[in-house]
């Protein structure tokens, strides 16, 4: 999932201070799971904003809605008949949802309600960590299912660097060395001989550095 974290309320207040009719839009997918922008977070933010404006003596209309997703046309279309009632939208979806909303409703200011962080997993409730950077050429088959692109600070492909100490990375003793994980995993799979095989130079043209990316599938296009 895409992992996001809540923005400080002060920052959101700054974003919407100048408006009188505010719509808060949550997303039922990833940001609900990582407890940053789901229905409950929308309700808490709406309540906090209402109190802030009431405290300032300013009359502001604040409504809430949570869409199934904000990265698909059909769900964003649900706002079509009501969005004109508002001066601004605060989207608590990831950056994808915020942008898609802005693209769809060209005349409506759309503000982000969360900080989008990475693609990751729920390690335990309240703890999320990165697993994928969407480099576009997955090499997990060669590394025992553990990604050196997202989990090695140096993105090394042929074993650990000299900074790996007791299985931990030199950038932070709480970060496990990705290559330690890979080697342990290969041992478990009885495939340690694969570790000896050199990984060729990776094609980075599919990564973000090559500019914004697009996936097109002719067979499913309408």
């Amino acid at each position: 999932m895409i992992v996001a974290k809540r923005k400080p309320i002060e920052e959101i207040i700054e974003e919407v201070q100048a408006y009188d009719k505010i719509l808060l839009v949550g997303c039922n997918e990833c940001v609900t799971v990582c407890e940053a922008g789901g229905k409950k977070e929308v309700a808490v933010l709406a309540s906090a904003l209402r109190m802030h404006f009431m405290n300032q003596g300013k009359e502001v209309k604040i409504d809430e809605i949570t869409l199934e997703r904000q990265c698909d046309h059909e769900y964003l279309e649900e706002l079509r008949n009501q969005i004109d009632q508002y001066d601004v939208v605060v989207s608590l979806a990831c950056g994808v949802g915020v942008q898609f909303m802005a693209e769809k409703y060209m005349n409506m200011p759309v503000m982000p309600g969360v900080d989008t962080c990475f693609m990751g997993v729920t390690e335990e409730r309240g703890v999320w960590s990165e697993r994928c950077q969407g480099c576009g050429t997955c090499m997990l088959a060669k590394t025992g299912g553990i990604c050196p692109v997202s989990r090695c600070a140096k993105r090394l492909f042929n074993g650990p660097c000299g900074g790996s100490t007791n299985g931990h990375c030199e950038i932070d003793k709480n970060v496990i060395c990705a290559w330690q994980l890979i080697i342990d995993r290969m041992k478990n799979l009885d495939k340690l001989e694969d570790y000896e095989a050199l990984v060729p130079i990776k094609d980075w043209s599919t990564e973000r550095a090559g500019g914004p990316r697009k996936v097109v599938r002719e067979d499913v296009m309408q």
């Binding site: 409950k40 309700a43 808490v44 309540s47 906090a48 209402r50 109190m51």
Partner: peptide, 11 residues
């Protein structure tokens, strides 16, 4: 007790 219960009570 959820966060929303606490916040709403002040609202």
């Amino acid at each position: 007790v959820d966060l929303i219960h606490l916040v709403k009570s002040f609202e």
